[in-house]
Write a protein that binds this DNA or RNA. Structure first.
Lengths: 245, 245
DNA sequence: CCCATGCATTGACCTCTGTCAAACCGCCGG
DNA sequence: CCGGCGGTTTGACAGAGGTCAATGCATGGG
């Protein structure tokens, strides 16, 4: 079971919307789906959306809700999750700056979206975004590319969930995070996830994650610094463990 | 580990290609991604592709291969699969008539595609398909819709793989098949999958699948007829088991 | 600066499911 | 119609990992 800090969702988003601002200073404008748009088109799209600030723990959309909004992630990390009726949770995706979230061209949001860190979004009403996308082949193509990539990544993750051991899962996870996150000068990465959330990604329990990490540490393969910090000492060994060797 | 009947792949496909034939008699032309195309456009697309027949067990594409072809499934059932280095396999999707297979707009095929039953495809060279799709917004939109749906389904399956018990997995699987497959007059469905393949979908073993099914049968919830036949006697009970009640 | 709170770690135990092995039996070919 | 093959079922057993519980220890508020 998963307790998020602030479960107050959409309403505070409204109140925290910033004044419209141009895409000029947007940190992700070359990587987000709007990257290929002409200046005019991008301005038009920008006027449909609004910038929104999120605190860690806030949920933007809930599983099963009507699909009302979609967004670009400008900054921060968020999780996508589904749960069983009795509260077991599975994280089905983690999104980073420049990623796209929400369910365009569909009535329902199939999973919840919750900020793991403080985050900023460029939020669009779904209906207006859909309309805009239909008229702009470039945008739609970019969205298709991204969705195809997501699908590939998601399917690769199914292999982990269905067939890998706890040790392989944790090793794979650490390598994945190291690839995604920027290490500090000492080579340490700061995980944007708690142990519980890591367990929810890997389809295991907090205790198993902890035991595996302690084991890696004992073997000198990683170093743990504080609660969220990890330094990969022996990457090759970790790769081997991830492959089940 | 998984042994497929004929592991001879692409070559026989060539030899079995039929003479080009129009889309007029195509059984999936109202449901496949080409459904929205004008008659002229559909003919143009049709001329890019060719009809191909597949026998159960034949593999059309292998994981990691260059992405050379994409296809519509005209008839039959196929599996999409990935495996670990040491041969553990996970089925990441099952596709039916009117579904689309292959990796457009990408260099690599991220999973293998293998026929579970005899099948017929409408096969396109990827490069030419990509080009055509770029010029036809309707086709691209339809492909996007389908990919978004696939992604939703795949993420829902992650919950099963990561968080459900063996009993819940098998119950969920049977309900899923009952929804997809047409039952005969006695209410029996013919599974297009062996026990091993079911295990590869559910991330478990053949023995566990078999034990769960025997248990359901003992309880009078399902009836097993022959090797592949299943009749759902008490659907409500199965729904309950699928939810972990 | 220190304490309290909540996350993380560690331990003990137990169960579910995987593994190995044998028996069973549909289904196809002769 | 029969026999054998290959998929399936069943059994016995072991172990990975889940559960419950206690302890440890970062981190932030007073």
């Amino acid at each position: 079971m998963q307790f998020d800090g602030a479960q107050n969702g959409a309403l505070p988003l409204m109140t925290r919307a910033c004044a419209p601002q141009s895409c000029d200073q947007c940190g992700v404008r070359d990587r987000a789906i709007c990257a290929d748009l002409s200046e005019t088109d991008r301005d038009a799209l920008s006027r449909i959306g609004r910038r929104v600030t999120l605190h860690a723990g806030q949920t933007v959309m809930w599983e099963g809700d009507d699909s009302m909004v979609v967004a670009n992630v400008i900054e921060g990390t968020l999780k996508l999750a589904t749960s069983t009726g009795d509260g077991r949770e599975q994280i089905v995706g983690v999104v980073y700056a420049s990623d796209f979230i929400g369910r365009p061209f569909g009535a329902r949001t199939p999973h919840s979206v919750t900020a793991l860190t403080d985050a900023r979004l460029c939020l669009f009403p779904r209906g207006r975004f859909d309309g805009f996308a239909r008229d702009h082949g470039d945008l739609q193509h970019r969205l298709l590319q991204r969705t195809l990539d997501d699908l590939d990544r998601t399917r690769a993750w199914m292999l982990l969930l269905g067939r890998k051991t706890a040790r392989e899962k944790v090793a794979t996870f650490l390598l994945d995070m190291a690839r995604r996150l920027q290490a500090d000068p000492t080579g340490t990465i700061e995980l944007p996830l708690s142990r519980q959330q890591i367990a929810d990604i890997l389809g295991t329990t907090i205790e198993t994650v902890s035991r595996q990490m302690s084991d890696f540490k004992r073997r000198g393969i990683i170093a743990l610094v504080g609660r969220r910090g990890v330094r990969l000492v022996d990457g090759a060994a970790l790769e081997a463990l991830a492959e089940g060797v």
